[in-house]
Design a binder for these strands. Structure first.
Length: 426
DNA sequence: TCTGGGGTCCTAGGACCC
DNA sequence: TCTGGGGTCCTAGGACCC
């Protein structure tokens, strides 16, 4: 029994390439909301020295000089391609964990007919053929080891994208070649601390004493170390765990000062959060509203947050809007310039487990039908065809997506056109 | 001018209870 | 001289992930 990690290469950039042949072989980057930071880079862009998380304005010249292709993020497109990719994997194993938008784990068995390596190659070819996305595949006894195999599959040309380390004599060498902060679960902070203690590679970490690890990296780190030794501690999460919070937050396109603008923004985020909640068939018992000034510019940045109960639990947008508006008033400070705001819904419970309200059931029933109708119409005719009175779908706070590619696969109006003048121009 | 968004888990410390 | 001890719940902060 082995675990395979299927990891899409430079996923967002690869998605852009699927629909634009001219991007092949060229440096491509995808930006975060408001076209702020670089969050994905093609190999060619990495080679130019463009780093993950860099604010675009700091590298503007480099980008122009090298004619780097720049895109705003197009989450609708990426999400849709991710779902297709996930579907392809189900042909290869009944046990698939959709770990993130660009990574999946699956349980794999070698057979008399086929080695793990050749199964991996078949997966890679099939995904490429059916989705157009290149992937790297790492295979080993545990998730953490599979991640390390994947790390080398992606970087070493010799592997041609697939590396099986299950029971392999090469496993120790691979661990020795893995910088400790590349181990899944070891970030930059722990990495620094470990290097200070002479632990520099995944192999060093594997050999560290349990007590020491427990003390310095908590039980989480201890699990990681056991996984490096080939003892599975992290199981495949085939059924996604029920989520505990739902957050919608954004930086504004431009700073805002008035309560009126903040109300509009918060109302917009509440609507989105409530839609997400209903899609997951959950209700919330708690809502947190927060607003922030610009932490990069402000000497004394202000962060205000208010948490309020939603009693009884609800999934209805109007009920949340009313509570959110109260929360906002309590944290608003006039005379400040706000750059970001957000909403978190908590104390989530599956909607069907809720007891019926003691009274007002008619009202409740009407609200349910109203919500279903709104969601349904918005799904059919486009988001925000129906909106709640409080939010005006415009204003300087709206997120900027200056360079978004068409939503080729999810919007009829933006479907790929062949041989005609594309409506999308750089 | 321009600096992302959405999650999870663990620990320590304080409040409170018996 | 010597100020219990254990349990639970909550929160803030810190670490991590993509």
């Amino acid at each position: 029994m082995s675990i395979a990690l299927v990891d899409a290469n430079n996923f967002y950039c690869s998605c852009e390439r699927v629909f634009a042949a001219r991007l092949h072989g060229r440096p491509v980057v995808v930006l975060s909301n408001n076209d702020g930071c670089i969050i994905a880079r093609s190999e060619e862009a990495k080679a130019l020295g463009l780093k993950m998380g860099t604010p675009i304005f700091q590298v503007r010249e480099l980008i122009e000089r090298n004619r780097v292709e720049v895109f705003s993020s197009n989450y609708e497109l990426y999400g849709d391609i991710s779902a297709r990719l996930h579907e392809v994997l189900h042909d290869f194993s009944p046990e698939v964990e959709h770990y993130s938008i660009d990574e999946s784990f699956l349980r794999l068995d070698a057979s008399r007919r086929q080695t793990l390596d050749s199964i991996g190659r078949e997966i890679r070819n099939r995904v490429r053929k059916l989705t157009g996305i290149p992937v790297s595949i790492g295979i080993a006894e545990t998730k953490t080891l599979a991640k390390i195999a994947g790390y080398h599959a992606k970087r070493s040309k010799k592997t041609r994208g697939v590396l099986d380390l299950t029971g392999s004599p090469h496993q120790e060498r691979a661990l020795g070649l893995t910088p400790v902060e590349e181990v899944w679960g070891i970030g930059s902070r722990y990495g620094e601390m470990l290097r200070g203690s002479g632990i520099e590679t995944a192999l060093d970490l594997r050999e560290a004493a349990d007590d020491w690890v427990r003390q310095h990296l908590t039980v989480v780190g201890l699990r990681t170390v056991h996984e490096l030794r080939g003892v599975p501690c992290l199981s495949l999460e085939i059924v996604p765990a029920t989520r505990k919070t739902v957050t919608v937050s954004r930086s504004f396109g431009a700073e805002v000062e008035t309560l009126c603008d903040l109300r509009a923004a918060i109302a917009f985020y509440v609507s989105r959060a409530a839609e997400k909640l209903r899609r997951h068939k959950l209700a919330a018992g708690m809502i947190t509203i927060f607003i922030e000034t610009n932490r990069f510019k402000d000497d004394r940045p202000y962060v205000g947050s208010a948490t309020l109960q939603l009693a009884p639990l609800t999934d209805a947008t109007p009920e949340m809007l009313a509570v959110a508006a109260c929360g906002l008033e309590s944290i608003f400070r006039p005379g400040r310039r706000y750059k970001k705001a957000g909403v978190t819904l908590g104390e989530l419970a599956p909607i069907e487990t809720l007891t019926r309200r003691l009274w007002g059931d008619d009202e409740n029933e009407r609200m349910k039908i109203l919500m279903q109708t709104v969601d349904c119409l918005n799904a059919k005719f486009g988001r925000d065809v129906l909106r709640w009175g409080m939010f005006v779908n415009q204003g300087t706070w709206r997120t900027r997506f200056g360079k978004r590619s068409p939503r080729y696969t999810t919007k009829w109006m933006e479907i790929l056109q062949i041989g005609s003048n594309s409506r999308f121009k750089k």
